[in-house]
Design a protein around this nucleic acid. Sequence first.
DNA 1: CCCTGATTCGC
DNA 2: GCGAATCAGG
Length: 215
Amino acid sequence: MSWTDERVELLKKMWTEGQSASQIAKELGGVTRNAVIGKVHRLGLSNRVEGAAPTPAPAAAPAAVAKPAAPEPVAAPAAAAAPRVEPEPEPVRPTIAAVPPRPAPAAPQPVAAVAPVPGVVRKPALVPAGQPLPPQPSLNEISPETLASVREVEKRSRKISLMELTERTCKWPIGDPATENFYFCGLPSSAGKPYCEAHVSVAFQPMSARRDRRR
DNA sequence: CCCTGATTCGC
DNA sequence: GCGAATCAGG
């Protein structure tokens, strides 16, 4: 295989999208991730900084441009990400084997672009005909931050198919299984868990602080 | 161990 | 220019 314009273009596209070298290599086929990385460097687009920090989203990325002399006291990532509360054996159980709880109200909107108003996720009015949706396992109030995080991750999801799931890919389903627009998150899952960090945080919640249910 | 990108260096 | 091998991390 050689670096044809097409392949280079795809490489550039994926790289700027934040895909990893191995993912790109897999997509291109015929090349290893080393080849991809090598090419990336030769193309001089190693600095994958594009308006937002893709893969790792730790604290603010040090925009150290040239002088590292800045007296940066290392920002404490304390309350940065959602502090995972050790959940009790009371995770939101996937009702069906291997099928986790309903992610946020299935957002059947594939192509983003239309800036959805953050904060409130409205449940689509139409219920896809077909399978009776399992009783919603207390889709209680998930912290807005977590929700936002999840949404962000889902944009970044690899959209892999059932067959592509491995021991270490996030198995969180996205979309409606009854439609074509369905796939799994696919991002690297965290140690031993079935989902990626973001999805773990919504799947395993402390205890449903849910006592509404007025009557 | 799984993975990541970065670099080197013979080809 | 290419990319395997290697390095250096998470």
